[in-house]
């Protein structure tokens, strides 16, 4: 930042003298864009996950699990609902950020983010809060549908044991997975690579993370393996929030979840610097 005066001497300007660049409005704009984007394709983003969740509740919760009782005496549906809610949150949070970036690469407007005064922190937070928002909306819908099923079967509403813990795990899980979508989309070279990561890595992790079954029922070998699945801690955290009990110690769940959030955040920031914004 040196400016040459007419005499040829050099005056050095300090950063404080530079015009200030707004920070909040650009961030809010990107967040709003993320929200509007998924509202435009509401069938894919909200209706179809809703149908999936309803089917799961119907098949596993009502038909197959109708006769199973938990040790606490509660129905299998009570076990399934928090798992399904968290599955919706994680899946949709991941989908939102990753498909936003991938479609931006496809249409070419991802490069816009490079030529406007948005920093990597603003981009990352706008995308992760956008993903979290969609995750929470679908999670809430799943929860409401689950409650309707529960009420029909049990004649009562499933109470929430620890609302604060529930909120904590939903937010940390949703943020983690929307942040995880960022590097995966940035480092992908095609649509197929992103969906492959979703189908062959994330979906198995989510299914094996104890959405449908308790860790206690697993063979000790698989049980030991599952300890390394971060999704297990998210799901058990949410289950603790709703039921007040879970397979995993709540402190451990909270610790692992926070660690995952920080790790995914750092990896995502890195990908925003090194990633490829160019059009496919």
């Amino acid at each position: 930042m040196s400016s040459r005066t007419s005499e040829g001497s050099v005056e050095v300007a300090s950063v404080r003298d530079l015009p200030s660049v707004p920070r909040f409005a650009p961030f809010m704009t990107l967040y709003e864009r993320e929200m509007k984007r998924f509202m435009k394709v509401i069938f894919q983003t909200i209706v179809s996950p809703l149908i999936t969740a309803t089917l799961y509740l119907l098949i596993f919760g009502v038909s197959l699990g109708g006769t199973i009782r938990l040790p606490s005496g509660d129905s299998y549906l009570a076990f399934l609902i928090p798992g399904l809610v968290m599955m919706s949150v994680l899946n949709n949070a991941f989908q939102n950020s990753s498909s936003s970036i991938v479609s931006g690469k496809f249409s070419g407007d991802l490069e816009d983010l490079r030529v406007v005064p948005l920093g990597k922190h603003q981009i990352l937070w706008a995308m992760s809060i956008g993903g979290l928002t969609r995750g929470l909306i679908v999670g809430l819908i799943t929860y409401v549908v689950g409650q309707i099923f529960y009420f029909a079967l049990e004649g009562a509403v499933l109470p929430i044991a620890h609302p604060l813990w529930l909120g904590f795990f939903l937010v940390v899980g949703g943020l983690s997975f929307s942040k995880l979508g960022v590097p995966i989309a940035f480092w992908s070279r095609s649509f197929d690579q992103v969906s492959a990561v979703g189908a062959f890595i994330l979906l198995p992790l989510i299914y094996l993370g104890g959405v449908f079954f308790s860790l206690e029922n697993l063979h000790p070998f698989w049980k030991a393996i599952s300890q390394f699945n971060p999704v297990l801690y998210f799901i058990n955290g949410v289950r603790y929030g709703v039921l007040g009990t879970s397979d995993v110690d709540i402190g451990l769940s909270a610790g692992v979840s926070l660690a995952a959030l920080i790790l995914f955040h750092l990896v995502a920031l890195r990908s925003l610097v090194t990633g490829n914004y160019q059009r496919w």
């Binding site: 394709v41 479609s103 249409s107 490069e111 816009d112 406007v116």
Partner: peptide
């Protein structure tokens, strides 16, 4: 470039917003 989801006015509104 294409901008998959948005119309002309929305694109300009977002772009303006990115500049505050």
């Amino acid at each position: 470039i294409h901008h998959g989801y948005f119309d002309v006015r929305e694109i300009l509104e977002f772009h303006s917003g990115y500049f505050g």
